[in-house]
Amino acid sequence: MDTWNYLEYAAWALSALFGVLMLIDLVRIDTTYDNELLISSREGEIEATAERHEI
């Protein structure tokens, strides 16, 4: 066992940590908020109020 072996284990552990963090948060958000709100984004909505594309 040298440093690189320990780094391999650390990489496995960190990979699992980041994956779990994302999945837990995804489940928490999906169960906390209404899906209609989560998918309510509309393209260009802010743009429509900021610019009218008039010359």
Binding site: W4, E8, Y9, A11, S15, F18, G19
Partner: peptide, 17 residues
Amino acid sequence: GLNQQPFIILAIMFLAW
């Protein structure tokens, strides 16, 4: 004989996070 897999996975997982 370094196992590259954990580092490949870590790169993707960290940046996705």
